[in-house]
């Protein structure tokens, strides 16, 4: 066998091994640098220091370990490993800090929401009182029946403008009654069902009935009833309670019904 190719191949082998070692070293050097940059960033952020001090300390310890190891030969895997762990702790610290900031913000907004709810309730109450006897007549069609579907309250057609989904202010009194009832009966939940007459496109009617039911649900939610207690359904022109042939019948069919659960929170099945 010729010696030259053998020597050549040994040289090649050694050379590639050296290259590989070099590449490993470069990688670990890079990992160390980026871990260091990550750590400097969290160390300089007072918010992160305040909310996640332990994670920042761990990041620092692991970085120091990686730096110590980097002075030894053949430790590039370990250096990369500890640099990686350090970077992860820096990232975790950043996330924890962001979470805490969000939670603090949420608590502030929640207080603001309670304040506005109270103000809105007072505004609606004083509005309802001013309307006085007249308002009582306005909602006379508001009727409550106890049937197989449970307790059902019907909000009549005059509480909405034609084709619109926003509740008129004449609905204040009714809505306040419902809110009060739900606050006294914290286990009860409601399903709000919208209905229209058969005039017009049935897809549009379906949408309008849903929007009107949602509008009632929004007001209840704005006045402090938890969203989890409110379901919303739109039935369009299905389930009329009167003939759609007369103006009176159609007015009867345009309605929003509030179905109350029993006092254990069990609702009758949706239609």
């Amino acid at each position: 066998m010729n010696r030259i190719p053998r020597i050549l191949s040994v040289c090649l082998l050694l050379g590639s091994a050296g290259l590989y070692g070099c590449a490993g070293h470069q990688n670990s050097e890079q990992a160390l640098q980026s871990a260091n940059a990550d750590f400097q960033k969290v160390k300089g952020d007072t918010n992160v220091l305040r909310s996640a001090p332990r994670d920042v300390i761990r990041a620092g310890e692991l970085l120091a370990r990686a730096e110590r190891l980097s002075s030894y030969v053949g430790s590039s895997d370990d250096v990369s490993h500890y640099a990686y762990l350090s970077s992860r702790y820096s990232a975790i610290a950043t996330e924890h800090s962001q979470l805490l900031l969000n939670q603090e913000k949420l608590a502030r907004l929640e207080l603001e929401r309670q304040r506005l709810q109270l103000a809105l309730r007072e505004a609606k109450l004083s509005g309802a009182q001013q309307q006085g006897k007249w308002a009582e007549d306005q909602v006379i069609s508001l009727s409550t029946q106890q049937g197989e579907r449970g307790l059902v309250m019907t909000l009549g057609d005059m509480l909405f403008d034609t084709g619109r989904a926003e509740l008129k202010s004449s609905a204040n009194r009714t809505v306040l009654k419902v809110v009060q009832f739900l606050q006294f009966n914290p286990k009860r939940v409601v399903r709000i069902e919208g209905y229209t007459d058969s005039t017009g496109d049935s897809q549009e009617n379906l949408q309008l009935s849903r929007d009107r039911a949602q509008a009632v649900a929004d007001v209840l939610s704005d006045l402090g009833i938890e969203d989890e207690r409110i379901q919303v359904e739109g039935y369009g022109n299905q389930f009329p309670i009167d003939a759609n042939t007369s103006e009176h019948g159609r007015a009867q069919n345009r309605r929003v019904e509030i179905v109350f659960s029993d006092d254990k929170g069990k609702l009758s099945a949706a239609r």
């Binding site: 949420l106 907004l109 929640e110 603001e112 929401r113 506005l116 709810q117 103000a119 809105l120 505004a123 609606k124 509005g127 202010s169 204040n172 929004d218 007001v219 939610s221 704005d222």
Partner: peptide, 16 residues
């Protein structure tokens, strides 16, 4: 919560 707050403010504007 921000959506709800916007809605509440709008409602309050309409109620007053």
């Amino acid at each position: 919560v921000n959506t709800r707050l916007d809605r509440l403010r709008k409602q309050l504007g309409a109620a007053q």
